[in-house]
């Protein structure tokens, strides 16, 4: 989104604080820049302010500079090489937790599997929202496991489960090669009841376009961003069907990815589209007809 910022904005910013002009290119306007500078000053020691400002001028993501991104009630650690959790994901995960909550409560054991997990934000937040806390002294009946192909992501995700004090476990593995992951899940005595995923879903063409956001293209891992229908095919054919899971939510960015997923599902499935609060297509939600996951219908603004 190349947009020319008038010189006057930089001058105004400089009047306010010598560090503020550095934030203008990434923030576009004064108010947003002031806010970012405020957070930098709040969260980092003074000796790091100038370095932070210089990095931000290069469109380096603020979350990598500060080291965290709030996600629901959690603070998720972020590191270069691993995708930063998005607010859209936070939104649907919280909605999903509300729908799953009564189902989870009625079960002795409940397993949730998250594929392409990255920082581990999705299974961690689900564990936080659905699992019982130490205070409640109820036995933990929810188990969550995250899978990612990147060793860097798995390492960070494990750190995140430590800092958030949640029992979520992480396995390194490729979604296109489910055998090894399934073997280690079997070893861990884990069987998923529900699957979530936030696979890379930006079509190559869009990613290469010149107007694609700089901060994302230059500093976030392409591995976690560029992908298309092939991921939804493997998710349905190699995970949903063989594991006999009754419901799923996959994040996506394009309507055609939704339709593609719908066409892969058998006649015994219903599915719909979840839109985010920015009115963009965000997830495809699927459930077995007449089963206990009929309530997932409530998440969808459009049901096929």
């Amino acid at each position: 989104m190349p947009r020319l910022i008038p010189q006057s904005v930089y001058r105004l910013a400089a009047k306010h604080s010598p560090l503020l002009p550095y934030f203008i290119p990434a923030c576009h306007n004064l108010a947003a820049a002031k806010q970012e500078l405020h957070w930098v000053k709040q969260e980092l020691p003074e000796t790091q302010w100038l370095d932070a400002a210089r990095l931000r001028k290069q469109h380096y993501p603020l979350q990598y500079i500060l080291g965290t991104q709030p996600f629901g009630e959690l603070d998720i650690r972020c590191k270069p090489g691993v995708l930063i959790p998005r607010w859209e994901t936070e939104e649907w995960v919280l909605q999903l937790a509300r729908v799953l909550s009564p189902i989870v409560e009625s079960k002795q054991n409940y397993g949730i599997l998250d594929l392409c997990t990255g920082t581990g934000c999705i299974p961690l937040l689900l564990q936080h929202e659905l699992g019982s806390t130490i205070k409640q002294s109820k036995p933990q009946n929810v188990r969550t496991i995250g899978v990612d192909i990147s060793p860097l992501a798995v390492e960070l995700a494990r750190k995140n489960s430590q800092t958030t004090v949640l029992p979520t476990q992480f396995v390194q593995g490729d979604v296109f090669e489910p055998q090894t992951v399934m073997a280690s899940m079997h070893e861990m005595d884990f069987r998923p009841d529900f699957i979530t995923a936030n696979p890379p879903y930006i079509p190559r063409k869009q990613f290469e376009a010149s107007r694609f956001e700089k901060s994302v293209k230059q500093h976030e891992p392409e591995l976690a961003l560029v992908g298309d229908s092939e991921f939804y095919r493997t998710l349905v054919e190699k995970w949903i069907n063989p594991m006999r899971v009754q419901g799923f939510v996959f994040e996506l960015g394009e309507v055609h990815q939704c339709e593609y997923t719908r066409d892969l599902l058998g006649n015994d499935w219903d599915c719909g589209i979840l839109y985010d609060s920015n009115s963009q297509v965000r997830c495809v939600v699927g459930w077995v007809k007449g089963g206990e996951y009929e309530t997932l219908r409530g998440l969808c603004q459009k049901v096929y």
């Binding site: 993501p61 995708l83 998005r86 960015g253 963009q280």
Partner: peptide, 9 residues
């Protein structure tokens, strides 16, 4: 656009 395409702070 949103989701993975944009990183909002």
């Amino acid at each position: 656009a949103g989701g993975q395409k944009i990183n909002k702070t």
